[in-house]
């Protein structure tokens, strides 16, 4: 079985990471921003799996499971905050809740 070169796989992870980053910076809907952050986290997780497979160690996959668990915790708190935000402002647009400046 021929192996995919490590750096190609890392390039894929980097592209995913960049897509997520552009999403966070350009989207103004808070739910889509959270989804973009999830893409970034999963790109980092993919990078760990690639690195783990290069060294034939389980550490990379272990790290990926940690990332999944942490992302789930983060999203659950995030969604709770979004519910509060929607009750107060009746909108999901982050520009319209931005009151603090300077």
């Amino acid at each position: 079985m021929s192996q995919i070169p490590v750096h190609y796989a890392m390039l894929l992870a980097a592209i995913l990471f960049a897509i997520g980053l552009i999403g966070v910076l350009s989207r103004r809907n808070i739910i889509l921003m959270l989804m973009s952050v999830e893409i970034m986290l999963n790109a980092a997780g993919l990078a760990f799996i690639i690195a783990g497979s290069r060294w034939l160690q389980p550490d990379g996959q272990v790290m990926f499971i940690f990332i999944l668990a942490m992302a789930a915790a983060e999203v659950s708190v995030g969604l709770a905050l979004i519910v509060q935000m929607y009750q107060q402002h009746k909108t999901l647009d982050v520009n319209s809740i931005n009151k603090m400046k300077g």
């Binding site: 890392m10 952050v37 970034m40 986290l41 790109a43 980092a44 990078a47 690195a51 783990g52």
Partner: peptide, 15 residues
């Protein structure tokens, strides 16, 4: 969350 993913990607590169 964004900064955590930066940190994680950096750790992955070093690993």
């Amino acid at each position: 969350a964004m900064s955590s993913s930066f940190l994680l990607f950096g750790i992955a590169l070093i690993y």
